[in-house]
């Protein structure tokens, strides 16, 4: 674990998490959640757990985001808050 890299990634995670919750465009929120998952996967890989990071990159950033976008194609794109 490299501490400056770890700190930078964790700070980045907080910023992306807040952005995904505050943006009003739901498509942008979902894509930001995918970016959040990918940064989280990087954090886990540099914490010496490559299996968990790999699974998160495949499931959280890949399949889960695709499922959410597929569901959003049947919903309204804009949120009120």
């Amino acid at each position: 674990m490299i501490i400056p890299l770890d700190l930078a990634l964790l700070f980045f995670l907080v910023v992306i998490g807040i952005a995904a919750l505050t943006v009003k465009d739901l498509l942008a929120a979902i894509v930001l959640l995918g970016a959040y998952s990918f940064v989280m996967a990087t954090v886990w890989v540099q914490m010496h757990s490559p299996d968990v990071g790999f699974t998160e990159a495949a499931v959280g950033a890949g399949a889960s985001t695709a499922l959410m976008i597929a569901a959003l194609s049947r919903l309204e794109r804009w949120s009120s808050d």
């Binding site: 995904a20 739901l26 979902i30 959410m68 949120s79 808050d81």
Partner: peptide, 10 residues
């Protein structure tokens, strides 16, 4: 949050 998708993201 009020939106259900936002709740899911949370």
């Amino acid at each position: 949050k009020d939106n259900l998708i936002k709740k899911l993201i949370g």
